[in-house]
Every structure is written in C-alpha cells, then in structure tokens.
Amino acid sequence: MRKDLFASVGLLGIAAAYYLASLDIPTSTLEDEVGPRGLPTVLTVLLVVLALALGARALLLAPKAKPAANDNEDAEAPWPRAIGMLALGAFYIMASTIVGYAPALFMLLLAVIFYEGMRPSWRVFVVAAGGAAFFYLLFDIVLGVRQPEGLLF
C-alpha cells in the first residue's frame, strides 16, 4: 500500500507536468470546437482523479497480507542492476553515432553477455563478433535497411 501512495504522488506529478506542457500547445485558425487542448485537458483531470483515488485507497484500506514467496519464478533483478541494463542500451545509441553500427553492436553484445554473468573467453568474443556480423548482413545487406553510420565507420 505504501507503494500505491508513492505511485499516487508520482502520478499527480505527471499530471501537473503534462498539464503545464499542454499550455504550450499553439492555437490554430483550423481549430474545431474541442481543439487540440481538449483531450489533454480531459486526460489531466482523469489522471488527477485516478491518482487521488489510488492514494485514498492506499490510506484507507488495511494492508493485505504479504503473499508467500513463490520460488524464483517471479524473481526480479535489484533496481540498480536493472537500470544498468538500460544504460547499456543508452551506451549503444551513443557508441553507434561514433563508431558505427557493427562495432557498436559488437560492444553491446559483448557488454550484455558479460553483464549477464558469462565469464570472458574466446567463445564469447566469437559469438559477439558473429552476432554483429549476422545483424549487419541481415539488415544492411539482405534487407537493405541502413543502420546507424558513425563518425569513424
């Protein structure tokens, strides 16, 4: 229930930010009765109402008994580790603009394999290099869809 209270506060923050951003929507001579701000305003009100209802429910209702842990079926990574995984993707976006698609993908593959706990070995490097080559051939050559070009390659 404490989680719901935090979620409620967060949602109110999102509603406020969304509403403030909606004030910047320009007006147009082609506007209809509802206008481009119509739906955003309705959604802001809805989100505020839902967030308040969620918060009220969290405060008023008695906390439920915690369910017993069920093996590792729903085990989840701790949040710093999860964010780290996302950071690897962000790193790939930056790297691809500098070194180009295939080398950046090679680094991403390598980084994720190590991040998932595989120990360094020649096999890991071969798999990462093979994977980068495979994706390059598939997208750039076979499908003819250009992938990011870097400053270097």
Binding site: V112, I113, E116
Partner: peptide
C-alpha cells in the same frame, strides 16, 4: 541466458 539476452537486445535496437 546471457547469449539470448544479448541477441534480443541487439534485435530490439536494430
């Protein structure tokens, strides 16, 4: 799992 996760990630970004 490490290989699978890496290839899924590569597939997503590509």
């Amino acid at each position: 799992r490490p290989y699978l996760a890496a290839f899924i990630y590569a597939l997503i970004v590509s």
